[in-house]
Design a binder for these strands. Structure first.
Length: 661
RNA sequence: GCCCUCUUAGCUCAGUAGGUAGAGCACAGCCAUGGUAAGGCUGGUGUCGUGGGUUCGACUCCCACAGAGGGCUCCA
């Protein structure tokens, strides 16, 4: 045994290597192809550099750059090279931290004299990074004492701060990436003049990197502290291969094309007039049509799902929000008070207090529960100026808000059927890929007994299990008033959107003294569930626009059919076709022959109308239409009755598929 | 709220060492009546985001503000 390393590979085969062999030797021994792509290794499950000595009798895995872990490593190494380039190009630059993130990496800097990075700087930095990568500099780890570390980073205050905090035992999770737990300071050096605090691992050398792009400069607070210094953050994306990089950049292009703010203008859906004020939108006829259809569908489903419809005003006396606690906990998110004769009024930031009042308007019996109140309730929240984002973050929006009051015994079933309902409605809008999150109690800030938290959390968990819905638990992420489930959907290009939420609330029933009389003739407190399905109608609409890239399915399309007479002579017939379509309940418009046919078709197509009908001489005689359907070949001489049948099938199929999921 | 960038016609964008502006699309009028993705001609487009300042003169330079975009922070 002495003098040899006995390496057991994951595939069961064994390798013998001379003592002191490194991961690189290992990689080389198992074939040149693998050696070439290997950028790190795992030893007994721990990620290590290829250039560390391997222990005897270890289980070793080779990390390739295409793997998730491998990408992480190469992105983090790219961040080091970025810091190296910046410190070389900008005298006096202070570098802080630079982790790998989804799709890439970033590094935060402070430049001397408050200088900021420009686009030209990014080009220069990119060029320098390429030089460093070409230079094939090995990443070499070393460890020094705290004192040595502080001396080494004498002119790097941010690095010193990290070392000091770790030395004083104040390290948090986010520090683990930089400093070893045993008090020693872990360093990586790949050239004499650049060393960074880091636990690694890294790629063996800078030449393993290269498929990257610096994306943008942004401001970021040091350690995320709003009161702390503002740093310059450079974001980059990095991949194992050129093809992956290009694919990623294409995805970004695609996302940009789908941007709902851009499509809202192009498709004439809605606008954000400056005169209205930031974060406020007006809906144009086409956008309003889609919204109406969404809302109508939602109402139908709720009506069939055992919900009671309610309405509540947009303004309320401050006493109400005092009772609900919003004025204490949520004041910053509310619009300033309006002083009136008989009190102080506020725009409502939530519908829940109103629904509590409805519940409380008379004595309730257990026989009435669960009581499900539903409202498309418009609320107003003061979102800080820098946080507004199209329809996704807006200052006035409409929640498809439901509050369900039930007994503890009903909780389990209610949540399970609620989850069914939510997913079924989401499917109707074309979403099929869901991911849920279960947020559990943060003991530091919560109301309610252990017993009720456990019971409710368990009810949520079982509902998720019963659905086989994939979910993650976010420990301690619940609001103070109760645990919750959030549901994300994945859209057509793979992005995730957080939409629906189901939240238990042990707080408002208490604050509003809600109660019901049980079968035991005693008074009990109901549990309240908050549930938003779209979340916000506006935001959901925005997500739909991006999901469908503006090409709404036929049942939602603002215009379902455009009818184009070939020439003016066919105008009357076209009008007759439109009338028939309308009589059949279709949203159809006539596009008069005052432009070339090709032009008119192009315009209708770019408006993403699902069916463009062309009618000419032969159609007038045969009672037919030419059908140019989205994504399909043109078909001539289709009888009007046949077309009506087809579009009905198109619409019905979508809805049937949705409901039965 | 903080950092950076941006703001010129309805939209997308050019532009001037500082001498008050252009293109395409859209829009209007006329011609063309065209069978499946943008026909031709003509025309009008504007307080160059707002308010100050510097200047003989500001769209251009400076300041403030507003709005937008990208981030950070926030989203009981």
């Amino acid at each position: 045994m002495n003098g040899l390393l006995n390496i057991l590979l994951p595939d069961g085969s064994e390798r013998e290597l001379p003592a002191g062999a490194t991961g690189a030797d290992l990689a080389a021994s198992i074939g040149p192809r693998l050696a070439k792509v290997a950028i790190a290794a795992t030893v007994n499950g721990e990620l290590v550099d290829l250039n560390v000595a391997l222990p005897d009798r270890a289980t070793v895995g080779i990390i390739t750059p295409e793997s998730d872990v491998g990408r992480h490593v190469l992105r983090h190494s790219s961040a080091h090279v970025l810091a190296q380039a910046v410190t070389q190009l900008f005298a006096g630059a202070k570098y802080t931290i630079g982790p790998a993130i989804e799709d890439g990496f970033y590094y935060d800097f402070e430049l001397s004299g408050g200088r900021t990075f420009s686009d030209d700087d990014l080009h220069a930095i990119t060029a320098r990074m390429r030089e460093i990568m070409k230079a094939d500099q090995p990443f070499v780890r070393s460890a020094v004492s705290t004192a040595e570390g502080l001396a080494l980073f004498a002119d790097q205050p941010y690095k010193r701060e990290i070392i000091e905090r770790v030395a004083s035992g104040g390290a948090e999770d986010s520090d683990v990436g930089e400093v070893a737990g045993d008090g020693s300071v872990s360093l990586y050096r790949n050239t004499p003049d650049f060393v960074d605090l880091c636990l690694g691992p890294h790629v063996p050398s800078t030449s393993k990197l290269g498929h990257f792009k610096l994306m943008k400069v942004a401001g970021a607070y040091w350690r995320g502290n709003e009161k702390g210094p503002m740093l310059q953050r450079i974001y980059g994306t990095a991949w194992a291969t050129k093809a992956e990089l290009e694919e990623h950049l294409n995805r970004l292009d695609e996302a940009e094309k789908r941007d709902h703010r851009k499509l809202a203008v192009e498709l004439d859906l809605l606008s954000f007039p400056r005169e209205l004020g930031g974060g406020l939108a007006v809906w144009h006829p086409r956008g309003a049509t889609v919204r109406r259809l969404m809302e109508d569908y939602s109402r139908d489903r709720h009506a069939n799902g055992g919900y009671e419809f309610v309405f509540s005003p947009h303004l309320a006396n401050g006493n109400l929000f005092q009772t609900s606690g919003h004025l204490d906990f949520y004041k910053d998110g509310m619009y300033p008070p309006m002083e009136m004769d008989n009190g102080t009024y506020y725009m409502k930031p939530m519908n829940c207090p109103m629904h509590c009042l409805i519940y409380r308007s008379r004595q309730r019996s257990y026989r009435e529960l669960p009581l499900r109140l539903f409202e498309l309730g418009t609320v107003y929240r003061y979102e800080r100026a820098g946080t507004l984002h199209g329809l996704m973050r807006i200052r006035g929006f409409t929640q498809d808000d439901s509050h369900i009051f039930c007994t503890q015994d009903q909780l389990q079933d209610e949540i399970a059927s609620l989850l069914d309902f939510v997913l079924s409605v989401l499917r109707a809008f074309g979403f099929t890929d869901f991911q849920a999150y279960l947020s559990t109690r943060d003991p530091k800030k919560s109301v309610g007994s252990d017993e009720i938290w456990d019971k409710a959390t368990e009810a949520l968990r079982q509902a998720l299990d019963r659905h086989g819905l994939p979910y993650e638990i976010k420990h301690g992420d619940a609001a103070f008033y109760g645990p919750k489930i959030d549901v994300d959907v994945r859209d057509a290009i793979g992005r995730r959107w957080q939409l629906s939420t189901i939240q238990c609330d042990f707080n408002l029933p208490d604050r509003f003294d809600l109660e019901y009389v049980g079968s035991d003739n005693a008074r009990h407190q109901p549990i309240m569930l908050h549930r938003a399905l779209f979340g916000s109608v506006e935001r959901f609409f925005g997500v739909l626009v991006e999901h469908f890239a503006g090409a709404f399915p036929t049942w939602l399309a603002p215009v379902q059919v455009s009818v184009l007479p070939v020439a003016e002579a066919h105008h009357d017939y076209a009008q007759q076709v439109v009338a028939e379509l309308k009589a059949a309940g279709r949203r159809a418009v006539l596009v008069e022959a005052n432009e070339g046919l090709g032009k008119r078709i192009a315009v209708e197509k770019s408006a993403k109308v699902p069916y463009v009908l062309v009618v000419g001489e032969s159609d007038v005689h045969a009672g037919s239409v030419g059908v140019n359907a989205r994504g399909r070949d043109v078909e001539r001489d289709v009888p009007v009755s046949e077309f009506l049948r087809r579009i009905a099938v198109d619409v019905d199929d979508a809805m049937a598929a949705a409901v039965h999921g």
